[in-house]
Design a protein around this nucleic acid. Sequence first.
RNA 1: GGUGCCAUAGCCAAGUGGUAAGGCCAAGGUCUGCAAAACCUUUAUCCCCCGGUUCGAAUCCGGGUGGCACCUCCA
Length: 465
Amino acid sequence: MRLYNSQSRSKEEFIPVHPGKVGIYACGPTVYNYFHIGNARPFIIFDVLRRYLESVGYEVTFVQNFTDIDDKMINRANEEGITVKALADRYIKEYFTDAKALGIHPATVHPRATEHIPQIIALIETLIDNGLAYETNGDVYYRVHAFPRYGCLCGQNLEDLESGARVSIGEQKEDPLDFALWKAQKKGEPAWESPWGMGRPGWHIECSAMSMEYLGETFDIHGGGKDLLFPHHENEIAQSEGATGKPYVRYWMHNGFINIDNEKMSKSKGNFFTIRDIAKEYDMEAVRMFMLSAHYRSPVNFSRELVAQAASALERLYGARDQLAFLMKTAEDREPDADEQQLMAQADQSRQKFDAAMADDLNTADAIAALFELVREVFKLPQAGVSRQALQKAEQAMLQMTGVLGLLLKQTDGISPEVKAMMDERAQARKDKNWKRSDELRDAIHAAGYTLEDTAAGQKVRKNV
RNA sequence: GGUGCCAUAGCCAAGUGGUAAGGCCAAGGUCUGCAAAACCUUUAUCCCCCGGUUCGAAUCCGGGUGGCACCUCCA
């Protein structure tokens, strides 16, 4: 597999630290609210990366943290008059609800910052011992100038970075670029005991501490949104490598942003959507399809029309799956004929193209194209009496591909006895050429939530979207 | 100011040296009692513009134009 590494700015062959195993750390949400459409992109992308790596045989340890202590958490908790812990518990629960709707598997581990205070403190102490951090008035800062490689990820030197830096009033830093590792307690804030007094961890240090806790001092893949490249990930490198003296991460992956109607999503512009908002209007699986229809590094625009397009494409995919299941009922146990052999060849070809696309820096758009090439062949099959062997091969290939993408997650529901009765009555009505009654029943079935189609092999139902 | 990204049909989007994938939408046709779904056909002589390299470029190089991001704990 080849992955684009943000650090080298080029695609590199993926070679894991430990053969057969992959460690991935993805920056998770700050749990002060429902997560938004922009958060959803990396969650879905790294879920697909993980599914893909597992599908080709890797044992994957996937870590995604919850930031459950920071300024936003404290402010929100104060607004609502609840504790930071209660706020975190609530939105972590909501995270899993939304993630499930989007087809995102739970990570191997979902560490919370507040449950790793000892590891964080130990890491800061090491940095102080190494001369890379200093304490002033209960705050601890990272001494950026003491880490020669600072800027290695974002590709900028200290002088250039400094020209854009600004200092907040009240901070006693040696240098404007120095960043907080530990913040002394302010009135009314949650705090933990430390060698520097009561306080709480800075944002950057939690990811260094938790990633190394679960994945080791050097691990394979670290990802997040492009905006995290600087300063968050740059700081993680400074912290981790400054403490261990070893390379921290082999491959840095960063996803592009989602714009709303060609504008950056922001609360001030009023174009800020949480997944929970979108779920009221759209099928979450269509949102996933939308996310995978473009390459993960490109910026994408999010709009109502684009989700509708994704929903239509997804419907075609479901149609193909249902068609295979439908054909299976009349499948024949015999050798495949020429057309059926072509279907089987297409199944192999699609799989190959799919794998090649995924192996090329997770090119989901190209992979989906390969999937649809098989879909087209499936629809060309006769309505009944197809070779079972050929059907099974096509179905297996299709489900393997959709499984990697995390699509086609909905099961086909059983039909209720009422709908079944209406279908039976309609079958008789059609036999009697009673078209009026037949159409009435079709409308009634539609109202009951199903769309009816007449095929050579009888009536076929599918659930309305 | 520093650093980087992007520009492909009505819409979305792959393709990074060998002659334009796939999806959505649209039109015509086939099938159907009528539908629906599906299938067939049509839909970019051309990939923002101008130069250059090359037998050959959407793909490489230079210069424009337009859009965007990071440098502000926003994925």
